[in-house]
Amino acid sequence: MASDFDPYTQNVTFHSVAGNLFEVNVQDIDMYMQYGIRICINYGAQLGASIILFVILLLLTRPEKRRSCVFILNCCALLFNVGQLVCQVLYFTSPFMRVYSYFAGDFSQVPLSAYINSVTATVFTTLLMISIETSLVLQVQVVCANFRRRYRHILLTISLAIATIPVGFRMALMVENDILIMGAQPSLSTMALQSNENITVTTSICFFCAIFIAKLGYAIRQRRKLGVRDFGPMKVIFIMGCQTLVIPAFLSILQYILVVPALSSNVITIVTISLPLSSIWAGVTLDNPHDRSGSASSPRRNLWNMLSFSNFLDTRQTSSTTHSMKPAVSCYADRTQPKLERDNNAYGISVEHDISVHSVRQEKDIV
């Protein structure tokens, strides 16, 4: 044996069914095996995160919220993501991944169930894309519900156009992939279509999230002008919206620089996880009591109502056990407060027990 012989670069001879001989380099076999291991680790991590978040979403969502469209869309997106990831993982345990079948291009021993599994994965991915885009359109419309009708219609038209383009590319890619799968052909001819689909998906996500966080950022700024500086649900959704905008865009660009198996699938999974996670986090923040010293907590309020009307509320309103059955709404002062505390408050109108309305300035003069 020659001293310069490298066994890790030698060729391995295979015999085809027809009796022909063909050689495969050992390095190609190693790369093929490493590709399967790396991509299964990637899919497995996404699958575990999606299942855990789906269980958490079911446990932490209040019963009255489970009929909302956002909750249903988030659950469907997680289930579709789990389904397509399971199908992707099952592919790497099917006869498609046999070394001889791959290098010889002989898939005659692959059963019909393996073809059905691969086709089902493309269908789940398309349904997942539709769920995500629909959820983004719906949430943007809810957040911008206080716009004028003309602007809301313009925004809805643009949103539908932006959401339809990636869905169209995804459906075209699904059809092309299914044709290649049933013909057991490589998918190299769909590389351009995959790149276009990935670019349009990233663009749509950035577009919706930019509108989303811009509206919430403006609302947070208005709240700060009113003196509301607590860490509330609006800031939670603002932070998660920034995450949904930045991280998928970063991963989408990164896949053109680094060679990582199925890196583009992480973009969709991160968006699928971020949407329900922001709702869970905001709900937990909303349910926390304002007074942590032991007093009774404030009533739970609807998240979307909080987003729409909290700019006009003063969070300095205190809760009292004596008025828990029939609460009072106070803008600046309350007759149940001590005189010294009333004197330190600004002038304004006070409403008590939903019955009497009196002027704080007048009451202060009388006292």
Rank of each mutant, 00 (worst) to 15 (best):
V246P: 03
N177A: 09
L313C: 02
I213K: 01
A184S: 14
Q34Y: 07
V329Q: 01
R223D: 15
E363Y: 11
I273G: 01
A214F: 14
I273F: 01
I366V: 10
L21A: 05
D354I: 11
K339F: 14
Q141G: 14
D291Y: 11
Q337I: 10
F5Q: 07
T164W: 04
V86Y: 03
F107K: 04
R150G: 07
R38C: 08
I37H: 06
A163D: 06
M97A: 14
G168D: 06
A184Q: 09
G232Y: 06
T272Y: 01
Q139N: 15
I132P: 01
T13K: 05
C209G: 08
F169R: 03
A172K: 07
Y115I: 15
Q194N: 08
T322V: 12
N344R: 13
T336M: 07
H358L: 01
Y347D: 13
Y347M: 01
F208Y: 15
D291H: 12
N177D: 11
M31I: 12
T122C: 07
N266G: 14
K65S: 09
G19T: 09
S252P: 00
I366N: 08
H323F: 13
I130L: 08
R292S: 07
I273H: 06
S131C: 15
S187N: 13
Q139H: 03
Y347P: 00
P338E: 10
D287W: 06
Y35R: 12
N20H: 13
L286P: 01
V246Q: 00
V175A: 11
I239V: 15
N25A: 13
L307K: 00
S264G: 04
I237N: 10
Y115N: 10
I366T: 11
L263M: 15
E176N: 11
F54Y: 11
I237D: 06
A45L: 15
Q185L: 14
L136F: 12
L90D: 07
V119F: 02
V70L: 02
F207S: 06
V260L: 02
Q222W: 00
S320Y: 13
N305I: 01
R292K: 06
I158E: 00
L275V: 14
I130R: 00
S330E: 01
D291M: 07
S195G: 04
P166K: 09
N305Y: 02
L188R: 02
F169Q: 07
V12M: 05
V143N: 04
W304K: 00
V167E: 03
G217L: 04
F14E: 05
V70D: 07
N20D: 15
S320F: 15
W304F: 07
Q141N: 14
C242A: 15
I154E: 04
K215R: 13
I56G: 01
V284H: 03
S265W: 02
N25G: 14
S159N: 11
I220D: 06
S264K: 00
I247G: 02
L156V: 02
L275C: 06
L160Q: 11
M33N: 12
H153L: 13
S118I: 03
Y115A: 05
M325L: 12
E341L: 14
S118H: 02
G227C: 09
L58K: 10
L254R: 03
V175Q: 04
V228H: 12
S204W: 07
Q46I: 08
D6S: 10
